[in-house]
């Protein structure tokens, strides 16, 4: 007993670890750290290449001129693709966000744990995994073939299909954060459920929903595969999505990257820089909205 109380306290510093255990621990920590480098390296490479090669294409004309028809023609011009990237993704958001938000309202306010709601939730998750090219083929068969021509609007429909499950799931997460007390208080004042939802629940969650929707828009703006299947190609401004073939930045990158000519490759890099700038803008905007106007989690 005396030996217990008088003995020195146990050494917890880990200094007397066996060599093998200490080595295994240090190697594992190193390997884990290396993994982060492995992921950071491609990001740095992409950022460096796109910035250094893309910036030489930038000029005022780049944003306003029409796209040269010939791959070999030197010089700027990506205006139509920039405009259509914004209009096509904007139109896609106009379609997908309202449906997605109302779908989320169904899941969180009405369906809850009913079998149908659970099934929709699972299928929405599954739908986020459907390859974007399949969405493009679907819109091609169900819309382009039916009306007989490739349109900017067809691309918007395909992108909307891609955005829908992302919006539903993120909006549902946000609705779940709305405190139940707010719903009860609203009901206690005599408001019907639809009125509670429209005037209390949705406004409370609006910043989170907006942030999630912007993230979905950012994702959709960079999509290529559904665009080349449904939208076709143009060199001139096509602000009307219901008139004739169209183009986007992503489609222009794909088209120009495969050409062996310097002029077209330079345009591909310029388009890549422009596209990344647009995508980051949406992402940062989404972050700001999410952090500034977050619901207090009490």
């Amino acid at each position: 007993m005396t030996s217990l109380t008088t003995s020195t306290p146990p050494d917890l510093s880990g200094r007397n670890l066996s060599k093998r255990r200490a080595f295994a621990n240090r190697t594992a920590t190193l390997a884990i750290g290396l993994c982060v480098l492995v992921a950071a390296l491609p990001l740095v490479l992409v950022a460096w290449e796109v910035l250094s090669r893309g910036s030489s294409a930038m000029s005022l004309d780049w944003f306003t001129e029409e796209i040269p028809r010939n791959y070999r023609t030197e010089g700027p011009g990506m205006g139509p693709a920039i405009l259509s990237t914004l209009t096509i993704t904007g139109m896609a958001a106009l379609i997908a966000v309202p449906i997605g938000v109302f779908g989320a309202v169904y899941l969180n306010e009405y369906g809850k744990n009913k079998p149908l709601a659970k099934f929709i939730r699972t299928m929405a998750d599954v739908m986020t995994g459907v390859p974007s090219i399949v969405m493009g083929l679907f819109i091609y068969v169900a819309y382009v073939v039916v009306i007989g021509e490739k349109l900017g609007f067809a691309g918007a429909l395909a992108l909307a299909c891609l955005m829908l499950p992302i919006v539903i799931r993120s909006a549902e997460e946000m609705l779940r954060l709305v405190p139940d007390e707010l719903r009860q208080a609203s009901a206690g004042l005599g408001a019907r459920k639809w009125r509670t939802t429209m005037t209390v629940v949705l406004p409370t969650a609006s910043s989170g929903i907006t942030s999630g929707a912007l993230l979905a828009v950012a994702r959709a703006a960079g999509e290529t595969a559904p665009i080349i299947v449904t939208v076709g190609l143009t060199y001139i401004y096509k602000p009307d999505l219901f008139y004739g073939e169209n183009t986007t930045l992503a489609a222009q990158i794909y088209r120009n990257a495969t050409q062996p000519f310097d002029a077209s490759q330079e345009r591909a890099w310029g388009a890549a820089l422009t596209l990344i700038a647009i995508v980051f803008l949406f992402t940062i905007l989404s972050r700001i909205i999410a952090s500034r106007f977050a619901i207090d989690k009490r």
């Binding site: 992409v46 960079g222 992503a250 992402t283």
Partner: peptide, 9 residues
């Protein structure tokens, strides 16, 4: 957030 076409490029 990097679009896949940029990775391809």
């Amino acid at each position: 957030t990097v679009p896949s076409v940029v990775f391809g490029l």
